[in-house]
Amino acid sequence: MNALTQSSKFSAMLNVFGRVAALAVIFIGFGFIVPDFAFFTAGNVENILMQSAVYAMCALGATMVIITAGIDLSAGSTIALAMVITAMILDVDGSQGPMVQSYPTLWPIVAIAGGMLAGTCVGLTNGLLITGLRLVPFIVTLGTLQAIRGLAKGVADNQEISPPTNWLYRQLMFPVQGRTFHWQIVPWGVWATLVAALFAAALMRYTRLGRWIYAVGSNADTARLCGVPVLRTRIMVYAMAGAFAGLAGVLEFSKLNLGQPTGAVMYELYVIAACVIGGTSLMGGVGSIFGSVIGALIIGTLNAGAQQAGWPKWVQEIVIGGIIIIAVALDQLRHRRKV
């Protein structure tokens, strides 16, 4: 039995290594396509990691949603709303000028909490609509995709919000690699994403809620028979997806210190692609947090590479779309052969 347990561990490792290898192939491939080997510089790698961090942060929640056999199409709009809310909080004036200048350390933390809370509210709304009205997640989040985008624009009064400079901008997503190597390697926002990923992975693997999420996605009727609170689990999952999308919004905001109500368009599709490339099944019950993180890195690398290769935008889009389909098809082919 021991040997067999090890063999299943081996196949799980093969799963991860296969994806890391795909990432390496794509990275090295673009390294030779992009002129002057500019793709291999520390600054570029950092840039890819920063962009991937936004997708990855959002994909943590999306992975949980997809494992319950659901979907969250409202993620991009939620990111935009969180960006706007974060920017607006940083822009608040107190009695002695901007609050962010009166409390330079504390106030940005309030802004982060605000962005995350806004996202959580959107997620909670999704979850309550799906379970309360018994609507399919696709329809509910297709609706909130529109509605939350509208809300973000309305709250921001159709303006981009540019608050006073603060440490969110200077520290969270500000490149650290210059001419010489910096000890921090990547900005704090990327490290924060890694910590969040570890947290999410532990939740999925080591908590009761995590077991419930897999059970609901694998067979909701069995979960019900076993006394799992199926509806509560679903609501929790969408709320968490909203929270992670909110944090992704904070990261996206920090890149430019700008709250853009029209930002993060199509991000939900990149995020879903990241999950699927990472091995999460849209049928539910199967998937892993680390797979999705690698998927997000693949999407980030593809985006950066296609851009820097100097291809026209339309070529970039066709190539990225094609690679997503091929990646998932290969993965499925491998699984089918195993069964």
Partner: peptide, 14 residues
């Protein structure tokens, strides 16, 4: 049973 899940998961789920 949740067929895709392990024996251990199915046994202990409740």
């Amino acid at each position: 049973l949740a067929l895709g899940l392990s024996i251990a998961d199915n046994t202990t789920l409740s």
